[in-house]
Design a protein around this nucleic acid. Structure first.
Lengths: 326, 326
DNA sequence: TTGTAAGCGTTATCAC
DNA sequence: GTGATAACGCTTACAA
């Protein structure tokens, strides 16, 4: 590995000058610039990130913490993050949040010792502990979750989105609409979405019925069965995640019911999973990739530490239909 | 941020001694150890990774390069990688390979300047260029792909796995079995799997019929339709990825065919996607998470640079059945 | 058992 | 416009 001194020697200049050229600063003639650039090419020189970071107290690493690496929602946000990061010459470092907050703090400390340029938290709320573990100089932002605290975040209005989803089902003529809720403890957003469902049903003077899942695929069927026991007249199910929605569609078919003829299913998030069933899931969409991109932008533009609320949208596909005549 | 000198001063020892304690070396009394540990706690000291890496020429970063961050297969391998890495105190840095090899080389150079402890390539073959871009000191291993070159890899025997999958369908009584192939250019493994299918069919004296997809969900339906045009008597479809398998199941149902009553579908890889359809996909399974874990082990245990071939298995679920009597 | 000092590869502050 | 030189925070001979 060639160092800056090697390049300097080769080009017949000082290391300082090489550094200036590499970093696009001012203070050298065109002739020296050419010579230095030639030397860099000849020696295949690449600045050492570690040395540079040590000196400048900043590296171009962006940390991303997600509940589950293999989670579809997190994957799509990560795609956006990765794109935006790469475009700006940043790298992405990955961590899992699923294992308790002590563990997250560990990641954050690591990121701090790497002098990370910023960290993005997917589907998890920022706690004061986290903020502290990161130190004062590293920006932190939450994505796909609304922070009731003053920490910055990028999200949709989950309450309103759930309201709109429920409302859509109601407008289709459904009166018995069950909610496949997520674990309120694991993802804050679930609670808020529940509220949106409750409000829409109450506004319409309709009875609410709700069972808890954990947002993942496997939790859908049992929760669905409980839902059906509690209200056998259900003609629509609103799942607070696409995974649960997809498993609900499958479970319904397994038990001999037709979707959407007998029962409609609405999902949430518009991840790829929503397209992996037949009929494909209608779903409340949030712009996951865009959120990831915006998060990177946010971290890198020091000034604006404002939170952003993006627009949700209803995506209608085959899994929802007007209430059956029976 | 406290530095090692702060700790040293606080504990009344030299930086060298602090370093020794921190790194668990020998050469200090129990008493000093206690004092140093106390100081570390008091000052909330954390060694600076950059400075350390600069000195030791090694950091605990493991690079992972995947074709698509949001790809189910890659996600599951990454889960394994992340687990194993974290256990050993390593961090994971993420990159995408989907954009052409010049771009991959860029990542590799970054990883080199970070003095990465090693890099893992998912679903992509190692090229001499890559090897060169990384420099001589950073180990590199491919996962979920068999390298015909001498570079290390962790994979299943894809040819045999495809053979066994095909054979399973044949044993079920199927005679007209179509192959939903992947793009041979994008993932090497597809070619090999094709060979396995071809061999099994030939061995059984059966006609082969094959259409190309690109392994992703959306490429399934059109390829399936072409397959059905070419052989309307098809009673089984072998998809070389679960995504294509899942979309095949959905497409078949959309067109009024029953799975598996009219037609069986077999997938490949046993990713989560295979469970996201109804009936769930029978599939040829490869131990993705385990592969990720082994890859980390491999990188970190300098000596054994041997490739490993893991066992595949047939997972039978609802999407396959004996050939219909008609 | 412990301390001193050099140096890893940069960048930044001075001089010239 | 260019070059010494001193850090950045750590590890590691080498001394003591």
């Amino acid at each position: 590995m060639a160092t800056i001194r090697d390049v300097a020697r080769y080009a017949g200049v000082s290391p300082a000058t090489v550094s200036r050229v590499v970093n696009g600063l001012v203070g050298y003639s065109l002739a020296t610039q050419k010579r230095v650039e030639g030397a860099i090419l000849a020696l295949d020189y690449e600045p050492d990130t570690l040395a540079r970071g040590l000196k400048t107290k900043q590296t171009s690493v962006i940390g991303v913490l997600a509940p589950l690496v293999s989670d579809a929602l997190a994957s799509e946000v990560m795609t956006g993050v990765e794109n935006a990061a790469r475009q700006r010459g940043y790298s992405v470092m990955l961590g899992r949040t699923g294992l308790g907050s002590a563990h997250v703090a560990g990641y954050l400390r690591t990121l701090r010792t790497y002098r990370s340029a910023g960290v993005i938290l997917i589907s998890a709320a920022i706690t004061p502990d986290m903020r502290r573990a990161l130190g004062a100089n590293v920006p932190l932002i939450a994505v796909a979750i609304r922070d009731q605290s003053h920490f910055p975040s990028i999200a949709i209005d989950d309450e309103q989105a759930a309201y709109d989803g429920t409302r859509y089902l109601i407008d289709l003529g459904h009166r018995h609409i069950g909610l496949l809720a997520g674990d309120p403890n694991s993802v804050l957003v679930n609670t808020v979405r529940e509220l949106g469902y409750l409000r829409a049903m109450t506004d319409a003077g309709l009875p609410t019925v709700l069972e808890q899942g954990n947002s993942l695929y496997d939790s859908g069927p049992p929760a669905l069965r409980r839902l059906l026991e509690r209200d056998p007249l259900l003609t629509a199910v609103f799942a607070l995640s696409d995974e649960m929605g997809a498993s609900a569609v499958n479970e319904l078919q397994r038990s001999g019911r037709r979707v959407p003829d007998d029962i409609s299913v609405l999902g949430f998030d518009n991840t790829r999973t929503s397209q992996h069933v037949y009929p494909a899931l209608s779903t409340v969409s949030q712009p996951l990739e865009e959120m990831g991109e915006l998060a990177v932008e946010h971290l890198l533009s020091a000034g604006n530490s404002r939170s952003r609320i993006l627009l949700h949208a209803l995506v209608t596909r085959g899994s929802t239909a007007p209430v059956p005549p029976g």
